[in-house]
Nucleic acid binder design. Sequence first.
DNA 1: AATTGCGTCAACCGCCTAGGA
DNA 2: TTCCTAGGCGGTTGACGCAAT
Length: 396
Amino acid sequence: MLPFYASPFVYSNHPHYKTTIVPPVDTQLFLPHHPPTTRHEGVPEMGRSPCCDETGLKKGPWTPEEDQKLTDYIHRNGHGSWRALPKLAGLNRCGKSCRLRWTNYLRPDIKRGKFTEEEEQIIINLHQVLGNKWSAIATHLPGRTDNEIKNFWNTHLRKKLLQMGIDPVTHRPRTDHLNLLANLPQLLAATNFMSNPMNSTPWDNNPLGLQTDAAQLAKFQLLNNILQVLSTSPSPPPVPMEALNLMGSQPLPTNQQLYEYLRGVNPVNLSQNIPSTFPNLDFHQPNIDHHIVRPDIVGNSKAFENVDSNGNFNQLSAFQTENNSLPALVSDLPEFSTVKKMENRYNQNNIDMSNPSSTSTTFEAWGDLMDDEAVGDSYNWRDIIDQATSPSWPIS
DNA sequence: AATTGCGTCAACCGCCTAGGA
DNA sequence: TTCCTAGGCGGTTGACGCAAT
């Protein structure tokens, strides 16, 4: 296998390079992790001289010649002190710039090319747990740099989640009104699609119940969005009839609870009675995230160190769930990932049921709850929304 | 053909932290 | 214990390519 820079991709595919340079370097000498650097190597001990403040140092894109100088030097000597390296290597750059260039581009173990779906999922899962800890995320993706992952998140994944109605920061449904309303068409489409028997998979072929889960999820998301708008707007906008029809088509066993909860009659019982696996609805406490405790939110990184190489994390150690709280809509494990399920079902043209690698626990319980019609609840979705849209609706 | 807008991503900036003196 | 530095990290910028107009 050729070293990455032996491919013309390195320079010819880069906007800053118009030429192709193939440095003849033995890649085996470049190990992913260098031994600890020796400090004060050729650096004056006293007096601070920030590397980037020095005048006369070159900035901006690196030339192939500079790359070769840096590569050759590290090949011969290792990087040692980054601060001393530029002078020793004959580069008119600051040490930071050299280190960045090496770690993000010249390092031989860097994997180039597009992110795979698996990598994408790992990033999403890890980001859900770790937040913007790009370097931590990068340690689980061999060959990928934190900078690359950060860029990929900001340019691809973030937008992807937003389009799915998921807040890329909290990994939970978005709660701002404009976006809630903007997402209604997408949610309607998703709900429509997943509610259609033609699009569902027989249980024998879909033992994981993913279709049901995703359909119910879409309905909850849709209802959640509608209710959030209704409950906080002085003059609620009309709810699309299509949404009412969709919701009204399936009576739910917990509608009484939902109804009472939404009316403020019995706000405590809902969370107590609903199983812990019930998806979070966040009705009128949209900004209270009491389910996922992430280090960038609470400043406690200790609880999030138990992440395996696939981006999975130990549910017991990583989550702190209150007794009465509901789990986040986005599940913790990759195979349960709501994002993944939504993603799979949103893209109607690219549905792949051939790889049912998931198992369902959270959503099975949820699905059971949704499908159990023996409770005798006389309310259905339409009732709830009708009540919510009536002038006497108590939540406003 | 020229212009504009957008997406991408390498590189920089500034802050933080570990660790040596 | 305090000071200082190098290295590391996350946020941001801006150059570039490309598609749309």
